[in-house]
């Protein structure tokens, strides 16, 4: 059994296994859109490896963070837009 940690996604708390990427945490939280494009379309993770920048979210008040590229940390606050 892998250890678990708690993060918040759009203000709701979720428990995820250690080693979960922020991108997966967002999906586990049931969100489909990570960001809203400049013309207002919902977008989510495309490449999964940090190059497409579609999975940008706000992490601990820092906007434009690539969700696929970051691992969840205890207490992390994740906001999609």
């Amino acid at each position: 059994m892998r250890e678990e940690i708690e993060v918040s996604v759009n203000g709701r708390l979720f428990v995820v296994p250690v080693g979960t990427t922020v991108a997966v945490a967002v999906l586990l939280a049931g969100e489909t859109a990570f960001r809203t494009s400049i013309t207002g379309q919902p977008r989510s993770s495309l490449c999964g490896i940090g190059i497409c920048f579609e999975c940008r979210v706000t992490i601990d008040h820092h906007p434009h963070q690539r969700a696929c590229h970051r691992l969840c940390q205890p207490g992390m606050e994740i906001l999609t837009r």
Partner: peptide, 27 residues
């Protein structure tokens, strides 16, 4: 990635992209 109508919808991802997310725990 080659664009087709609708390719920007959420839950359309790369083949390798899906694999990467699966590895990260995507259900």
């Amino acid at each position: 990635f080659l664009p087709f109508p609708g390719w920007t919808l959420p839950y359309i991802m790369g083949a390798g992209g899906a694999l990467a997310l699966l590895r990260g725990g995507m259900p």
